[in-house]
Design a protein around this nucleic acid. Structure first.
Lengths: 356, 356
DNA sequence: TACAAATTTGCATACGTATGCAAGATGATT
DNA sequence: AATCATCTTGCATACGTATGCAAATTTGTA
């Protein structure tokens, strides 16, 4: 039964009075690197403890023009890859004493309200980890002078920083792997059609196949969504000339595709059809699926992202920077094995054809 | 190649000057319900648009003592139930014009730093959706006068609000379902041992079984973690008297348990063993698993949570409130079916024994 | 038209902190 | 002991907005 009023909150002035020093002294006590003698510092800390004082981050932000808040925009969390990323981001940002303001669940082109919110909170940086978000948003932010990093995505004009993996090379390696496995007909379940990851992966895939004389690819679109992927799979498997090798643009869709293959079409994997995914995340690693998949190194991607942001915040320079990391083709049970090229590293089977 | 300085940011005074009015007028234009004529309002809005002005939420917070930020604390996102909750929370809070500050990835008892951060940002409310978080934290926040809601969790002393489902009744219904299915020996894969959900689910389960004369339950602990659940399953299935009915405390563990059962022990589900889970989330619904599971109505739980917070913020009264919602036992393929009691609602099979 | 009531406006101040500047305290060097 | 360099400290002010109060304006009424 508390009073109906709002919490009062102890201020630095109150601490100052209690400790018999100036408000400045209190401020300096809680400002790393400020000029303060250890004697008064101790006095202040003691008073602060007894009064239960904590610096008001809001007021601090107002004067320093730094909120120590990073906005993270993610269209959806249904794909476990993103929760994974989110958790790592939380860790990495906390380590830098930054905090994470999450925006999610609005995958329409109607990005303006989000942008408004971002601007209103004067966030110090923005991470766009959404494959389906208007790329105007990123430009808008950059124009406003706020560091932006595209996570797992790029835009055509590279005015804004990004962190990605070699999606094209990944698609190519998958093609080589499937060709080496002796497959003859190939399919592709696409992600969001206007996303850079989808474009790059498919480009690499088709280039890789073309290099071995395979120029025809059966394509259906799953939009990186489970439901759409199921429908795409149904169309794919109902084709008269069903492919015997299938690259699904991410693992999230791949598990849905595998369920359709097994339980709706009675297909044996990998005997009747080989399936390869992308991300190496969550269910892909479970025994039921065991998806052969190009990995994306989440931890290193997150490190790079935070690194770029911290750099730009510290320097004030917003020069676009592009970090491109390597993945590996993790070999499991969802696709037929080629005769050679599989090596073991860190207890995992990976595909590494000798490049010559 | 921008200048090295920080973004300037348009202020209300600049807008005021441009529009030929006072700063107060600008403020009132952006304050719903404030006293302002529509004529000056239009002038201000026009100037604001041309200058690209957006109210500074930080400065506003300082004076109103309201940050419009809700802190969400989640220990881990590995279990898809939580990303699901997170996405709904994002939606619900955005609808109320609140924002979501996410804290995650620190499941140690070392909660003090988190608490510090929360306090420093003067968040308007806190949602603790973490099963493994020190319950002291919640009391601390309540003491500080900040509304707190425990999500999917309670503490012994009900000084702090909570939103849960009827876990005990859920456990009981699962017991009845398995007994009605003709099972004779029963097991339980436990969640975190000191969590309220685990305690309540197990209590209901054992009460329900006891009511039919089954007093011995094989228990192993999976700590709501995938890895631990696998180990627990191995121990469980290696027992000489392996149970033929198994209640796994949540779906996240249940899928791991099913994989162990099928691929390490060669068990047929549900012929050799029936498995029932809890949450009705993610993989549980996939064909590969098809877990019979007690549902938790995420959407309604989130609504209740936000509702409680908004009430307490608006009124300033922090009277603990406990919302307890109902779930249903969704029947799929992971457990043997009882002869009666299964009804169809909304296209789903659920178990509803006639209570008499 | 005159006057009261209601509405709108600007002034001034407050929110809680950080920081440049000058004054004061301390220590080092001869 | 005297001079100078180095630290500490407090004062005053600024950050960008909201709001009580009184003055100014508009609206309504007789």
């Amino acid at each position: 039964m508390d009073s109906g009023v709002k919490k009062p909150g102890v201020t630095s002035s109150q601490v100052a009075e209690h400790a018999g020093v100036s408000q400045s002294a209190v401020s300096r006590t809680f400002t790393p690197g400020a000029s303060i003698s250890s004697k008064t510092r101790q006095k202040v800390l003691a008073s602060a403890k007894t009064l239960g004082y904590r610096p008001n981050a809001i007021a601090r932000s107002l004067i320093t023009n730094r909120s120590r808040i990073i906005a993270v925009v993610m269209a959806y969390l249904e794909n476990l890859f993103y929760p994974d990323v989110l958790e790592e981001l939380g860790r990495a940002l906390a380590a830098e004493n930054y905090h994470l303001l999450l925006f999610t669940g609005f995958m329409d082109r109607d990005s303006d309200p989000v942008f408004d919110q971002l601007m209103q909170y004067r966030v110090d940086g923005i991470i766009l980890a959404s494959t389906s978000l208007s790329s105007e948003l990123s430009e808008e932010c950059a124009t406003a002078g706020i560091p932006v990093v595209l996570f797992n995505r790029t835009t055509g004009r590279d005015a804004v920083s990004s962190v990605t993996t070699r999606n094209r090379e990944g698609g190519k390696r998958i093609a080589e792997f499937l060709v080496a496995g002796g497959h003859k007909s190939f399919g592709y379940i696409a992600g969001l059609e206007n996303s850079s990851t989808n474009r790059d992966r498919f480009q690499g895939y088709s280039e890789g196949l073309a290099a071995h004389g395979h120029t025809s690819i059966a394509v259906e679109t799953g939009n990186y969504s489970r439901i759409d992927a199921q429908d795409a799979a149904r169309r794919m498997f109902a084709r008269p000339n069903r492919p015997d090798a299938l690259f699904v643009a991410n693992d999230h869709m791949a598990v849905a595709v595998m369920d359709v293959a097994r339980y709706e079409f009675g297909l044996q994997i990998p005997d009747d059809i080989s399936i390869v995914g992308y991300d190496d995340v969550g269910p892909a690693t479970w025994t039921s699926y065991g998806i052969t998949s190009m990995s994306q190194p989440v931890k290193r991607m997150v490190e790079a992202t935070v690194d770029i942001l911290m750099d730009q915040i510290a320097s004030g320079e917003i020069e676009a920077e592009h970090r491109i990391l390597n993945g590996e083709l993790i070999v499991r049970t969802s696709a037929r094995l080629p005769a050679t090229g599989i090596v073991v590293r860190d207890g995992q089977q990976i595909y590494r054809p000798k490049e010559a």
